[in-house]
């Protein structure tokens, strides 16, 4: 943290006039918004509104046609995946993208790969920095496993775990990276109410305990209103609402495009 903090801190992430198209299809048109450090920002909108594409632009999976991304004092026209990872941006995926053949513990440990200092030769021969580091990384991984209450499954192969647990392990893998900015693509898709509540608690605890800034995509409006500090509404690749949850709820354009169909 800066000691000379201005009254309102600069945003951690700022998208400016981002446009993205796939051949002739415009996925995102001229979207700008800012995410303050430490907040939970929800991206909502009907299917195909461009929410996942926007996340993919933020961490460099997609290259936008126009616009710029400012993140933590740096400005990028195009973010590269490894630049994003090195700068503490990490994410989960809509259709779980875990390493299915590996154990829960190994998945979480893999999430820490950018924090590993010993070289592969040191590790293979168990020399130099490797032995101590193995224990240190394991402790960090175990802290995450404990935080998400997945200790009983640490040695299980993730491919065999139930869906809800896999979602949690994927969050664990992302948290293991100690991210500054965490992007969650539908972390509660396909869950029942109880599982959603559990996941919501983990997301709030992440924000509270680690101070992580979170951008999430979610369809359940109840969850969105309860969790987020800031809501951005997309429709057909355009931004139609941006503000506090209660403001967005009042926005007639949003009601017409999205919430209206829900209520």
């Amino acid at each position: 943290m800066n000691t000379t903090q201005p009254l309102s801190p600069p945003p951690l992430l700022q998208l400016e006039h981002i446009s993205l198209s796939f051949k002739a299809v415009k996925a995102i048109t001229n979207i700008s918004f800012a995410v303050q450090p430490g907040e939970i920002c929800a991206l909502i909108g009907p299917n195909g509104a461009g929410k996942s594409s926007l996340l993919n632009v933020i961490n460099g999976v997609y290259r936008p046609d126009e616009g710029a991304i400012s993140y933590n004092g740096e400005t990028f026209n195009i973010m590269q995946t490894h630049h994003a990872a090195e700068r503490g941006i990490t994410r989960t995926f809509q259709n779980i993208a875990l390493f299915k053949g590996m154990s829960v513990l190994d998945n979480v440990l893999t999430g820490r790969n950018l924090h590993v200092r010993s070289s592969w030769l040191e590790q293979v021969f168990n020399l130099g920095r490797a032995p101590q580091e193995a224990v240190r990384q394991r402790k960090k991984a175990e802290a995450i496993i404990e935080f998400l209450h997945i200790q009983p499954w640490r040695n299980n192969v993730v491919g065999n775990l139930p869906y809800g647990l896999q979602k949690r392990v994927e969050l664990g893998r992302a948290l293991a990276a100690e991210p500054k900015l965490l992007l969650l693509d539908e972390p509660m898709a396909g869950m029942n109410t109880e599982e959603k509540q559990e996941m919501s608690r983990f997301i709030l605890a992440t924000q509270r305990e680690f101070g992580t800034t979170i951008v999430l995509i979610e369809h359940d409006i109840g969850v969105v209103m309860a969790l987020s500090d800031h809501v951005v509404v997309l429709d057909y690749g355009k931004k139609i609402g941006d503000g506090k949850p209660e403001e967005v709820r009042q926005n007639p354009q949003v009601i017409a495009a999205y919430l209206g169909t829900q209520h």
Partner: peptide
């Protein structure tokens, strides 16, 4: 030792889901 080291985990990560592997660095 190799397969239980970080290198072994990275190999399996690339095998199981290379996009996710790239995204986590």
């Amino acid at each position: 030792n190799i397969v239980r080291s970080e290198l072994g985990r990275n190999w399996m990560a690339v095998r199981d889901m290379d996009t996710a592997a790239a995204v986590i660095g």
